[in-house]
Design a protein around this nucleic acid. Structure first.
Length: 529
RNA sequence: GGCUCGGUAGCUCAGCUGGUUAGAGCGUGGGAUUCAUAACCCCAAGGUCGGGAGUUCAAGUCUCCCCCGAGCCA
């Protein structure tokens, strides 16, 4: 059973912003975690490239829509690569294979009697790509979101008979766990309770879209086409673009991670489309919150957008991942504050975790021949009752339970807590004092072994959240990172799985410890990002 | 305008079905220490729990009204 998870397919109207990076990083952590647990994972991201808005943006830039999409989607792809995102697929809705999938899907929906023709008359916002039901006044109505004039449309469109699925959708959103976080469910419930209305799935006179088969002049409405991208993305490189082939690769999705603003599309329209085509439904839709910056909405007009590429370049992947995952409750809105960002990164990663490894490794090397000290058998055994062994076991348990709930904060906190406990233990035992006395060498060996072991486990726990720092820590301990690269062969079970490695006692006494180099540099940001 | 979620120490947040002196981390101040990345460890100050009214022996925790923020629907 494959664990399929998706980011939204990002709209290529503009370049990637921090919000997309946030979503993608979170998904990456989930994907890495599930792979480490030994599950087969299909992590999907990509770009949504059709629609009038794209067409106009491209025109305004003096480009063809295709050239525009090529450029922006290449940006996305490159950005995720630099962020070390471990996605298995990158789908573009302009991929010719996507058209084939959409056609087949549409055929099923149409065969099921869910496509009707209807006249759509009203004010349209191109930025929203939506009809606005009831603009206040007829004179120069504008979109309340975009503050742009609405355009009058009067066209015959194809409609999807959403209304037929009222009961099924209502039941679906009652299913515990389908909409997450729980607090978002009510909003969707109310929307559905007002009665689902059929919605148009085609546009006329819009060349930049996928033609609707058998309906001259119609192209698919962007959302209809975009959502299906999740299915096209399932196709492996060598697969024929057949719907059934794609589905067999990993449908239904286990998780769609999206921003809270597009919950309705994913929790209502999308499941209804799938029901109509007779396909199974995704297990969970998670709507996370938005990021502000220093308390303000980020936007071009305010000139305060935080470019994820710049952020990465200046601060590194570990720092940003840590801040976003550790400090912002996944699901709630969050605020990016530079001071807090550097404080947290320096405190948690450099001072607490990095320095723990550095000081311990340094002592071990000095007094135990550049290697892991020979702790006593009882200290090294997997069922050791050493206080740090107990703490480590508890940390692992909390960590896993938290990630199962997509609670990155709690997971990060669990790893951090172990490092804090190890630092505290070190200060209590004060091996540097013990070493000045006679006959304490065994005690010191035990103490250092236990602290090094704790550091190893912290490093392992961080693997899904901060893959880079994790490997640096493990290398510093003379260990091999659990999976050296994201795309490890899925069918090949690694000799020692992550879960096995998490057991206490993995460090081999007398094995060599490399010369310690700080694994995490402090951030010294002299100017604003 | 309607709906949903949130408003708890300077900052980010915990506070389950109402019940002793409202908690944690960061930041700030002080102490201790030297193995370490001016790091680690310990201690302290800091809150009329957005505002108002009500229910109750008892409310951050329930009810109503208002204010602020975010999202959805208009």
């Amino acid at each position: 059973m494959t664990y399929t998870l998706t980011t939204p397919l990002y709209y290529v109207n503009d370049r990637a912003h921090l919000g997309s990076a946030y979503t993608t990083l979170a998904c990456d952590a989930i994907a890495r975690y599930r792979r480490l647990k030994g599950e087969s994972v299909l992590f999907i991201t990509g770009c949504d490239e059709h629609g009038q808005k794209i067409q106009r943006t491209a025109e305004a830039a003096g480009m063809s829509p295709q050239a525009h999409c090529d450029a922006i989607s290449a940006d996305y792809r490159a950005l995720w690569e630099r962020w070390q995102i471990s996605n298995d697929r990158f789908i573009r809705t302009t991929d010719p294979r996507h058209q084939r999938i959409v056609e087949q899907f549409f055929a099923r929906v149409e065969a099921n009697g869910d496509i009707t023709e209807g006249r759509q008359q009203g004010w349209y916002c191109v930025a929203c790509e939506e009809f606005k039901d009831d603009p206040r006044e007829a004179q120069d109505p504008e979109c309340p979101i975009h503050r742009r004039p609405l355009e009058w449309r009067d066209e015959v469109n194809l409609f999807f008979r959403l209304s037929r699925y009222q009961d099924q959708i209502q039941a679906l959103i009652q299913t515990p766990g389908f909409i997450a976080p729980e607090s978002r469910r009510r909003e969707v419930e109310n929307f559905v309770a007002h009665g689902l209305r059929d919605f148009s799935i085609s546009r006329v006179n819009l060349p930049w879209g996928i033609p609707v088969p058998g309906h001259q002049g119609h192209t698919f409405y962007v959302w209809f086409d975009a959502l299906l991208g999740y299915i096209t993305a399932l196709l492996a490189a060598e697969d024929e673009p057949l719907l059934d082939t794609a589905l067999a690769r990993g449908w239904p999705a286990s998780l769609h991670v999206i921003g809270k603003d597009i919950l309705r599309f994913h929790a209502v329209y999308w499941p209804a489309m799938l029901l109509s085509a007779g396909l199974p439904l995704p297990a969970k839709v998670f709507g996370h919150g938005f990021l502000t910056r220093e308390g303000q909405k980020m936007g071009k007009s305010l000139g305060n957008v935080l470019d994820p590429a710049v952020l990465l370049e200046r601060c590194g992947t570990d720092a940003v991942r840590w801040y976003l995952l550790r400090d912002i409750p996944f699901g709630d809105d969050g605020d990016f504050q530079q001071q807090r960002f550097t404080d947290l990164v320096n405190n948690d990663l450099a001072n607490t975790i990095g320095n723990l490894l550095n000081r311990t490794s340094s002592m071990a090397r000095r007094w135990f021949d550049d290697g892991v000290p020979p702790g006593q058998d009882s200290t090294r055994s997997a069922d050791s009752s050493h206080p740090l062994a107990v703490a480590a076991t508890a940390a692992c348990r909390t960590f896993e339970a938290a990630l199962e709930q997509l609670d990155f904060r709690q997971a990060a906190e669990a790893a951090l807590q172990l490092a804090i406990q190890a630092n505290g233990y070190l200060n209590e035992q004060a091996p540097w004092s013990l070493m000045k006395r006679e006959g304490t060498r065994d005690q010191v060996a035990d103490d250092l072994y236990a602290v090094l072991e704790s550091a190893r486990i912290v490093g392992l726990l961080l693997a899904p959240l901060l893959p880079d720092l994790s490997s640096r820590m493990l290398l510093q301990l003379g260990q091999t990172p659990p999976q050296s690269l994201a795309a490890a062969a899925p069918d090949q079970p690694s000799p020692s799985s992550w879960v096995d490695q998490l057991r206490w006692g993995g460090l081999v006494p007398a094995s060599t410890l490399p010369e310690p180099v700080p694994v995490m540099a402090r951030l010294e940001l002299t100017e604003d990002l």
